[in-house]
Design a protein around this nucleic acid. Structure first.
Lengths: 254, 254
DNA sequence: CGCGCGGTTGACAATGATCAAAAAAGGTGG
DNA sequence: CCACCTTTTTTGATCATTGTCAACCGCGCG
């Protein structure tokens, strides 16, 4: 895998802790106001590639915020088939379903070596009351996750395989842009099988659909390096509720 | 669209309000402790069948708790196709995605004449701080919704149409039981097309899949009246990640 | 009474899953 | 640096499932 790009977060070995202010900022809230309020430090946990940060069904005792790296959110069926519910990157919240207090509903598996800030549930309520900025930030994140859940349903609602993939890529690009990264060049951290399980398709179909999107001229694909050549075209393809990317009037060859 | 039914949220002025204690109880929290704390009354709004309580894209100014009736949560594509993200009944939270502060991400359309408790966002934070029981109840509900979002992904992950339908029914029955209603007899409030749009299938396929589940002996279906004859069998069918309900060894006729 | 909506059924074409196999990329140890 | 192995990705061929089109029925409503 391309773990080549992983350099940036080996920041001075290990500051394996994170202040409340830094956390609020990581969550996208207003950190300034919160800076003086609490001087607790949260722990930071490393998760090796392929390791699972939390296990479906296990009792919940913390929520996590991704500091670096990426995760896939997985729900494993009894027959071993694992459905990939979504992916998470820096600033995303993990284990939020554990806020219900009982058990985690999903597993979170690291796609690369990653780090997360640990927010133990014990005392979290009290801290939220003491630091309204943290409360607001968590609240907003939670609502955001809800909206994302709607997105995945939207993606899977597409009938045609290539439209599903197009939607997936569009959403992905949007999230990347939101995160300040390039929306034109996606360096996928997950393999085809993960994407397939996410979209409810066979991984062979993913491969073929990539091919179709490339042929249509929307993309250039090199393994996990995806360049979006024509964002508007891709979006248009993603819009198709029913028909495939058939009405492509232009194909150099044809 | 059928805005025919929109006549009245003819507010016949009955109990169109709801105390904080009653709200907490409705949400499933511990109401006793909260009973004395705040005597605010929340408004109750009637929504006629077919009318939409809130509109995708509209600025969010409240969240709602279903008091009676039922809703479908809808995301409308630009081409008019509407994807049904889920359904909501009594005790369920609506407009939760508006907690992000900006705009609603989905629409909520009443499947029958319904009533909701209105929680204006203005002052909600303050109230939550004053009434921890309310805060906890809302928090729990939110986490619950997140877990539900995972469920819908799980349902749609099933490949075979009848398995999807079986999963849908199993989840539905579970939610009904959770709500104290019968898990054996489901009186569907939504039509086949809504189910189809929810599961990402054609409505004809839903019809056929119902037929298959009936033939297999799991169900008895009479229009929207669904009796689950063999819950365990249905669950087993729902488990199939791949194969259809083929291994049914018994079919009277055959 | 007739109209429209919701539901069911049939026939046909097409999309995607499955099986199979090979090519490419990444990783490991000499 | 190279050989070797595993994992990932791609491609091909076949077949089943499901979407689509179309017709029909039952029912409630105007």
């Amino acid at each position: 895998m391309t773990t080549l790009h992983t350099l940036p977060w080996l920041r001075t070995a290990d500051e394996l802790h994170c202040s409340v202010a830094a956390l609020v900022e990581l969550l996208g809230g207003h950190a300034e106001a919160a800076s003086g309020l609490a001087d607790e430090q949260f722990g930071v946990q490393r998760v090796a590639r392929g390791a699972s940060l939390l296990h479906e069904g296990a009792p919940a005792h913390a929520v996590y915020v991704v500091q670096s790296g990426s995760f896939k959110c997985v729900k494993t069926a009894e027959d071993g088939y694992e459905h990939v519910l979504g992916f998470a990157w820096r600033r995303d919240l993990l284990g939020y379903d554990g806020l219900a207090g009982a058990h985690y509903a999903f597993s979170e598996v690291a796609l690369e070596d990653s780090r997360v800030v640990v927010l133990p549930l014990t005392g979290l309520d009290a801290l939220r009351r003491r630091v309204p900025e943290l409360d607001a930030a968590l609240q907003a994140k939670l609502a955001r996750q809800l909206a994302l859940a709607g997105d995945i349903a939207e993606v899977m609602a597409a009938v045609a395989a290539d439209v599903r993939l197009a939607r997936f890529l569009v959403k992905l690009a949007a999230r990347m842009a939101e995160r300040g990264e390039s929306a034109r060049r996606l360096l996928l951290r997950m393999n085809r099988r993960d994407i397939a399980n996410h979209l409810g398709l066979a991984h062979e179909t993913i491969s073929r659909s990539f091919g179709e999107l490339v042929e249509a001229g929307w993309l250039r694909v090199n393994n996990r390096d995806v360049q979006i050549l024509d964002p508007e075209g891709l979006r248009q393809c993603a819009r198709c509720t029913r028909g495939v990317a058939d009405e492509t009037p232009l194909r150099c060859a044809a």
